[in-house]
Computed example of a mutant assay.
Amino acid sequence: MNIKHSIGVFDSGYGGLTVFKSIAEKLPKYNYIYFGDNARSPYGDHSFETVYQYTLECVEWLFAQGCQLVILACNTASAKALRSIQQNVLPFKYPDNRVLGVIRPTAEIVGSFTSSNTIGVMGTRGTINSESYLIEINKFFPEVKVLQQSCPMWVPLVENNEHLDPGADYFVEKYIKELLEKDSNIDCILLACTHYPLLIPKIMEKLPENVSILGQGDIVADSLVLYLKNHPEIESMVATEGKKSFYTSGDEEVFNRHATIFFGSEVVSHHISLKI
């Protein structure tokens, strides 16, 4: 008898819920387990080694819950840990499991959204310093110029539910101005952090009309639709009861309160402990 599995969705905190929301809307029939490592977030300023260790622990926890396929709905984890897990862990320890990230599916299509062949990427320090988007976008669109901007205050604003307050205006305007000053031809900005969609109302107020914003939720969801279609051996193992479970390494009540904002509907989570 074949054992059916849930699809795992991981993020260092709440941001991955914006991706999970899009995935659940496009693929509502599947079972999902979301895990936020809130006790150790944010990951953005941690070293490659630390992010890799934290991410691997969380991925292995999801594997232990029966998730054969795990989505890293976190740009920092995708930038600093995904490749090592795929190349150095899965083939030897979990040959039947798969881990996917958010950077490659975004890089595969981002060039289609610019007319000037000049785009901006806004993300955490960890994502920007990894240069993962520069490398991946160049593979698919070598003619596109990519300018990067780290936004270290945006995640704290969102995580503390201050992203729509007047006090957020300064940091939204600051980072957008610094990015656009690097090249006046930028006509598309990629929000390379899953927290940032909650700042879109503020971002749009500060952007010139000719500059568009590109989020990742629908992109990753569409990529997962295609992946499951192209890998029926994985798709056939996913349970189709439409169940969604939420777990956090932090405080459940705090997580539920914030997660409901990110996910757009009520979230009830369970606490789990990882070594810290």
Rank of each mutant, 00 (worst) to 15 (best):
Pro208Val: 11
Pro142Lys: 06
Thr124Arg: 07
Leu179Phe: 08
Pro156Glu: 10
Lys275Asp: 14
Val9Glu: 01
Gly13Ile: 07
Val70Trp: 04
Val9Trp: 02
Ile128Thr: 11
Ser84Ala: 12
Leu214Gln: 15
Ser245Cys: 10
Leu147Arg: 11
Ile128Leu: 06
Asn256Met: 04
Glu159His: 06
His163Tyr: 09
Ala81Arg: 03
Asp222Cys: 04
Ile272Gln: 08
Ala168Gln: 06
Glu233Lys: 09
Ser47Arg: 04
Lys177Pro: 02
Ser212Ala: 15
Ile137Glu: 04
Lys177Asn: 14
Val102Gln: 05
Asp96Ala: 11
Tyr54Trp: 10
Arg40Glu: 09
Pro152Trp: 01
Tyr170Thr: 15
Gly101Lys: 03
Phe246Leu: 07
Asn230Lys: 14
Tyr14Met: 08
Thr76Pro: 09
Gln53Trp: 00
Gln65Thr: 11
Met204Tyr: 04
Asn31Ser: 09
Thr55Cys: 08
Arg98Thr: 15
Phe10Ala: 03
Leu214Ile: 15
Tyr30Glu: 00
Phe63Cys: 10
Arg125Lys: 13
Ile71Val: 15
Ala64Gly: 13
Val89Thr: 13
Gly167Ala: 11
His5Leu: 00
Val267Thr: 01
Ala107Leu: 11
Val102Thr: 14
Pro105Phe: 00
Arg125Val: 14
Gly217Met: 06
Glu49Cys: 04
Pro142Asp: 07
Ala259Gln: 03
Thr248His: 00
Gly111Ile: 14
Asp183Ala: 09
Ile119Val: 15
Pro156Phe: 04
Lys26Arg: 13
His195Glu: 10
Leu164Thr: 14
Val89Pro: 07
Gln53Cys: 00
Phe246Glu: 05
Asn230Val: 01
Asp37Asn: 09
Ile234Thr: 08
Cys67Thr: 05
